[in-house]
Design a binder for these strands. Structure first.
Lengths: 121, 121
DNA sequence: TTAACGTACAACCAAATGGTTGTAGATGAG
DNA sequence: CTCATCTACAACCATTTGGTTGTACGTTAA
């Protein structure tokens, strides 16, 4: 089980890579099966080089891996990387649930246990 | 329950907003409780105006809402928006699981002649 | 009223982003 | 071998981003 802390930079790269419709489309297509870069490029209204750059962004974010097959480069999305991104959001939601719990306790007039809330910033 | 399709632009804004460490920090702090913009700005090594811009990015993404209290503007994280972002990743993972299932079926019946080893990792 | 505070917003700037074209190196087909 | 294909990468350009400072405006405190 991977419980590593992700560095700010990796999370930056992760979400930045996800913040583009073309890249998300590439991710979806390469979850279903590996595709070469030129195959991918056929279906987008932009140059091959542009698609190549998008794949590079996904690769630096760890969201896809490439593997040579002959002269082709097969792109495949890494489901674990997507899980990593989700984990960041899970933690945010967990904090939120924690806050709701404290609210509930307050409303029930229970004393707060021990506020180990990690400081931010 | 709202399970609307999210437009490409909203997902773009969502992930773009999440792709910055300062903004993620703001999100975490405002999940725990509302904070004014100037209060937020105290703890970052940048100008008030810069923090104000980060809050605006989060607001356009729907990740936070603002509410006036006197001369202050209280920022609060919207947990549902985070859930929306997570949903996008969930769908990607679901596709991946679907693919693994199909692979398993394929391997159980008819080995492909071509050597497309379906090993993950 | 006056002063201080919290916010909003415009103007500006350097750096990053997302696209282009062009060139060059491997690889496979004929 | 020669040629077409697939990829890599540099150079360039327009726009966006993330920061700055400065100004203006509403609200609260003295």
């Amino acid at each position: 089980m991977v419980v590593d802390e992700l560095s700010d930079e990796s999370v930056d790269r992760l979400f930045h890579a996800l913040a583009d419709a073309t890249r998300r489309s590439i991710l979806r297509r390469c979850v279903r099966g590996e595709l070469s870069v030129s195959r991918l490029a056929e279906d987008y209204p932009m140059s091959f080089a542009a698609v190549q750059k998008h794949v590079a962004v996904l690769e630096r974010a760890g969201l896809v891996t490439k593997q040579r097959r002959g002269r082709e480069q097969l792109v495949r999305t890494d489901a674990e990387a997507i899980a990593r991104a989700r984990q960041v959001l899970d933690e945010l939601e967990a904090t939120w649930r924690g806050r709701v719990d404290r609210m509930a306790r307050l409303l029930a007039q229970d004393p707060e246990p021990d506020d180990k809330t990690p400081k931010e910033g």
